[in-house]
Amino acid sequence: MQEKVILNAEDFRRALTRIAHEVVERNKGGQEVVFVGLLTRGGPLAQRLARNIREFEGIEVPVGVLDIGLYRDDIPLGPPPQVRHTYIPGDITGKAVVLVDDVLYTGRSIRAAMDALMDYGRPRSIQLAVLVDRGHRELPVRPDYVGKNVPTSRDEEVIVRLTEVDGRDEVAIRKKETP
């Protein structure tokens, strides 16, 4: 299938820099912010946002990772997906937790992530940062920070590649392979 690149490495870097600035601005300096990345690709994205903030604000934003497997409502057929390690840095009660994910689509992962977070404490607020918002929401979920809005159809898929996982930074779109 033909892929179309919609964000290259440079666009990618700029989007994450802008989101990091917006997070600091919205949260009055970012002292109370905690990033929580949704596994798999939200993890490295959260790390990069924290690195950006360290560079231009000189503050250390804690970073966690969350596996939503145990909270999902849309389990694929077959054996259950591998559960991965969740790590939440310290007590999140009273903090501004920014969930970080690569692609926002139906909103179901975010619903699951919010349920999971509530089991760890009572954050002052939960915000959502995504690299790509591709639309087609099935739940009332709205992102606070968006790298790029990409109108898609349901028979397309958005592929996010990260240096940490895939060897390069890139977002592409292609027609879903019909089984």
Partner: peptide
């Protein structure tokens, strides 16, 4: 290995303030 890896993630669930998941 699959059981052990899953168990290791489950062990973290047991340490949460609310050790319960809706799975």
């Amino acid at each position: 290995e699959a059981v052990l890896e899953t168990a290791s993630a489950m062990k973290e669930v047991l340490t949460r303030p609310v050790p319960k998941v809706p799975t």
